[in-house]
């Protein structure tokens, strides 16, 4: 039982990272119905940017006291900003022109962008995995029979906080309203005086910034990064977004945590080598039996 609960904690913290990535997927899909394949690589880029900031600050090990908060906030902020800008640039270069093209076209450019980003990261930091400084100390807290590390707590809390902030932004601000309107009917929104291009760019900015935050957190959590990480992580995060109901923020988070749980429990009760097969089987099954996901509304084939 203890091991089971411990694995639930592991699954939730792994899922927290998926959830952060999935939020970006779901926002972009919600507004322009594009599976932004490059999103997983923007997330990896987030770890690379964070690593660059930490190197600039001369941080190579654990930091304690108030300096820790300063460094964490600064690194996350820079990573989020740079990733957000990357997202906006990608949208401008690769997707905007194809907004009215057949749907396969932007999906194919998205795959292309993903490959391009991976190769750029490979040039930048080389093809091998890179160590990431253990910035955050990792004391463990005991909750009854299980223990939870500070880093695990950080991941879970960050994912939940981000989701809530995002939810508030989208439902309580004017810009959020514009995003919802654009998602519902782009032409009508435009007629209402909403600047579609700005709104879509904003969506990319926020979604990619979240990937940047996820990038920092995962670097700290795993202590390493690699140019190719984004592929698998992106795919699983997309699975999470679909499982939760694509376009739905709470759904993305729920899906993220569920995928994390599925992975850790598969490892515990079946074996590690089957965890990917199980996760992707879940993806296939969800799409077959409940394409709208757990919290999504059913989506008819758009005419």
């Amino acid at each position: 039982m203890d091991v089971f609960l411990q694995q639930v904690i592991n699954g939730l913290s792994l899922g927290g990272i998926y959830a952060l990535i999935a939020l970006g997927y779901t926002m972009v899909y919600g507004i322009i119905e594009l599976i932004n394949f490059a999103h997983g690589d923007v997330y990896t880029l987030g770890t690379f940017f964070s690593l660059a900031v930490l190197t600039l600050l001369g941080v190579s090990g654990e930091v304690h006291g108030p300096a820790l908060i300063g460094i964490v906030v600064l690194t996350i902020a820079v990573a989020m900003l740079l990733c957000g800008l990357t997202g906006v640039i990608i949208e401008r270069l690769a997707y905007r022109r194809l907004r009215n093209a057949p749907r396969l076209a932007p999906l194919i450019t998205a795959i292309g962008m993903s490959f391009i980003l991976e190769n750029i990261m490979q040039y930048w930091r080389g093809p091998s995995p890179i160590g990431f400084p253990q910035v955050v100390p990792n004391p463990t807290f005991h909750l009854g029979p299980v223990e939870i590390g500070a880093k695990q707590l950080l991941v879970i809390v960050l994912a939940v906080v981000m989701m809530i902030v995002l939810q508030l932004f989208i439902f309580n601000t004017k810009l959020g309203k514009a995003m919802r309107a654009t998602a519902q009917d782009r032409d009508a929104a435009q007629l209402m005086g909403i600047n579609i291009n700005t709104t879509i760019a904003l969506t990319f900015l926020i979604g990619s910034a979240l990937a940047g935050a996820a990038g920092f957190v995962s670097g700290v959590y795993y202590g390493s990064t690699w140019f190719f990480n984004g592929f698998a992580a992106g795919l699983k995060a997309f699975t999470a977004a679909v499982l939760g109901g694509i376009g739905n923020l709470a759904g993305a988070m729920l899906g993220g945590f569920l995928i994390g749980l599925i992975e850790s429990l598969t490892t515990q009760f079946i074996s590690d080598q089957w965890s990917n097969v199980v996760v992707f089987s879940v993806l296939v099954l969800v799409l077959i039996f409940r394409p709208s996901g757990l919290l999504g509304e059913s989506l008819p084939n758009k005419v």
């Binding site: 411990q6 592991n10 592929f231 515990q268 074996s271 080598q273």
Partner: peptide, 17 residues
């Protein structure tokens, strides 16, 4: 004796087990 998968990054579940 367990086998891990290609490109795996998270080993916490396996190590907890």
């Amino acid at each position: 004796h367990e086998h891990i998968t290609a490109n795996q990054q998270d080993f916490k579940a396996l190590l907890t087990k």
